[in-house]
């Protein structure tokens, strides 16, 4: 492969392409949302923030995204450990299946849950799942499932079992070994996975919109609110809630960069 020198016209062209790409895909929409949100001054912003259904939508989005993140952090950590440290029949298949939420359309995942748990579904749960909050939790958990596993797994793979064995030899329990030997190594990857999980879970729309019934003030999430507000000709409401969701994304982005720099420093 031929190296491209930084000052060659090709390099300049590539830089222009990358900047143009970023400008069209991220920066222009962000500017559009910001200017639209502030277009009518502060009044609609205050009205939107005081709207109980908006506040409720954010509660639901946050609470259930935190719930999905907690579930996926714990189960994802266990799954990553099982996948790297255990050899069992079907391990490779399970390893491949972890990526299903990446390739599966969320809308189809939502419908599948209705087939499973809906009226006359295959499974009759003791409490309402679909068209209620547990369904949304399930949808958010499903779409954000792979991140912790996929972040933690490669780090675990680089760890040799010898350090763990050494800990056992000097009398450490399994839990102490995990806490003192394994966790410090995977901590950054785990946090990175958790941040990604949360980002994915809070932004989910497709599966949630199918499974939630979009009941205002009950199962409506922040992203569903944006969709509804546009249909209600409440453009300012839609833009303001979008802007808040963007802010959350920016915070997540900053967190990710902090974590990534920690990974890099560790790697050196």
């Amino acid at each position: 492969m031929r190296e491209i020198s930084p000052r060659s016209p090709w390099a300049i062209l590539l830089i222009v392409i990358v900047l143009g790409y970023a400008g069209i895909l991220f920066i222009a929409p962000l500017i559009g949302i910001i200017s639209a949100a502030f277009a009518d001054g502060l009044e609609p912003i205050i009205a939107t923030l005081n709207d109980p259904s908006v506040q409720h939508a954010f509660y639901i989005s946050f609470a259930l995204a935190i719930g999905a993140t907690a579930i996926n952090a714990v189960l994802g950590l266990i799954a990553a450990w099982v996948l790297t440290r255990q050899r069992f029949r079907g391990r490779r298949l399970f390893d491949a299946l972890v990526d299903i939420p990446f390739v599966f359309s969320p809308v189809i995942a939502g419908y599948a849950m209705i087939v499973l748990f809906g009226r006359e579904g295959w499974i009759t749960p003791p409490f309402a799942i679909v068209f209620a909050l547990p369904g949304i939790l399930l949808a958010k958990t499903f779409v954000s499932l792979p991140y912790v596993i996929r972040e933690v797994q490669p780090v675990l793979e680089t760890l040799t079992p010898e350090a763990e064995d050494a800990a056992y030899t000097i009398g450490a329990t399994r839990w102490t070994t995990f806490r003192k030997v394994v966790l410090p190594e995977i901590w950054t990857a785990l946090l990175y996975g958790i941040v990604l999980t949360f980002a994915r879970a809070i932004g989910e729309f497709g599966a949630v919109s199918v499974i939630s019934g979009n009941i205002e003030g009950y199962t409506e999430t922040a992203t569903s609110f944006v969709f509804r507000a546009l249909n209600d000709r409440n453009a300012s409401g839609a833009y303001i809630v979008s802007l808040l969701l963007c802010l959350i994304s920016v915070i997540i982005l900053v967190l990710m960069n902090v974590l990534r720099s920690r990974v890099v420093r560790k790697g050196v």
Binding site: S53, H56, L64, G67, G213, G217
Partner: peptide, 26 residues
Amino acid sequence: AGLLALSAFAPVAAQDAPEPITLTLA
């Protein structure tokens, strides 16, 4: 965040009415 999560499980207007009834319109 946990408290926030708990408080989120009640529908919006259900806060201070005595034994209100809930009607769902689709």
